[in-house]
């Protein structure tokens, strides 16, 4: 065999190897925050299954809640020449430099779950997030509809002070309260998004409000705090879900267990499927050059006892929440 033929053969092999790979398969690097919560774990597992469904290779880098690790991960994705980068930013600022590098390498970046400072708007393709103000409003509207004009004192378990999700979920709920004169937030305190603090704060709310007699409903910025609050109500001899209405946000499996047991009333879902819409946007962008809108809003669905909570619990249980 001459050297020319060999060269041609290798070239042919190289082409046949690379062609289908380039046409059908995308490789996406996903810089995930880390295992800060069960929801995060569910987001990671749903991202994997959504990618597998679309035959996309998803490389996940766990940043252990550190921005420097995320920046390192993005740089390594750029070096590997991935087709797109998903970023769930742990903080909102400080991304300009590394996102510019991605832009120079012509790798589109999609933000998942959280947005970054407006200064970086040109540096990413789109952001797939839920609207946390809207989530708070959905929770508020459920309560307004359920009490149907009756006077109702609400106690609020806020998320971590300063967290944008907490601020927004409060804002959305407050906007509904402002429109309904019968609703009144009598106490509001932070439960740091945790079960233990949710329980402790609810204990103090119950004592401060006449053993819970003055409380008509609890609104918690996440389900975990509500699970803690439900325990506090039970220990105080109250019946959560009946004596005191509950509405919270996130739709984690354990709240469905509580809803099925009649101890919780409603939850608003923060869907863990952020990667699905993001992958669709990237695939359309890569195939046809369709530029997605700057913000893709996920649905904030309300679940109550009418939605077969036991079935939802079973389906969500395995996601890693």
């Amino acid at each position: 065999m001459t050297s020319k033929a060999l060269l041609a053969a290798t070239a042919l092999v190289a082409i046949t190897l690379s062609l289908p790979a380039a046409a059908a398969e995308l490789t996406v690097g996903f810089s995930q925050i880390g295992s800060e919560s069960g929801w995060r774990a569910a987001e990671t597992s749903v991202s994997k299954s959504e990618a597998a469904k679309r035959k996309v290779t998803l490389k996940i880098a766990d940043a252990q809640q550190k921005q420097e690790n995320q920046i390192k991960a993005i740089r390594s994705f750029i070096a590997q020449g991935v087709d797109a980068i998903f970023l769930a930013p742990v903080v909102s600022s400080g991304w300009d430099a590394v996102l510019k590098e991605a832009k120079e390498a012509k790798i589109p970046v999609v933000l998942l779950d959280r947005d970054i400072d407006p200064s970086g708007k040109e540096l990413y393709l789109t952001a797939v997030t839920s609207d946390s103000v809207h989530e708070g409003a959905v929770a508020g509207e459920w309560l307004a509809k359920t009490v149907a004009g009756k006077a109702c004192n609400v106690v609020e378990l806020q998320g971590t002070v300063g967290a944008s999700v907490a601020t927004n979920r409060k804002k959305g709920f407050d906007s509904v309260v402002a429109k309904n004169a019968n609703l009144k937030v009598v106490r509001s305190q932070t439960g740091d998004f945790t079960r233990a603090k949710g329980k402790e704060v609810m204990e103090s709310f119950i004592k401060a409000e006449g053993g819970g007699k003055n409380i008509c409903a609890v609104y918690a910025h996440n389900d975990d705090m509500m699970v803690g609050a439900i325990q506090a109500m039970k220990e105080a001899g109250l019946k959560p879900g009946k004596d005191i209405l509950t509405v919270s946000i996130d739709a984690v499996p354990d709240i469905f267990k509580a809803i099925a047991a009649g101890e919780a009333n409603a939850t608003v879902e923060l869907t863990p499927n952020m990667a699905g819409p993001a992958l669709d946007a990237i695939m359309a962008y890569k195939a046809k050059g369709t530029v997605p809108p700057k913000w893709i809003q996920t649905e904030s669905k309300l679940y109550t006892a009418a939605d077969d909570p036991q079935k939802i619990y079973d389906s969500k249980k395995g996601l890693g929440y």
Binding site: E36, D192, T194, R195, A196, K199, D224, V227, G228, Q231
Partner: peptide, 12 residues
């Protein structure tokens, strides 16, 4: 702490 909330929350 785990017994209090009937669960182990390793993050918090």
């Amino acid at each position: 702490a785990a017994a209090d909330i009937m669960g182990a929350d390793a993050n918090n």
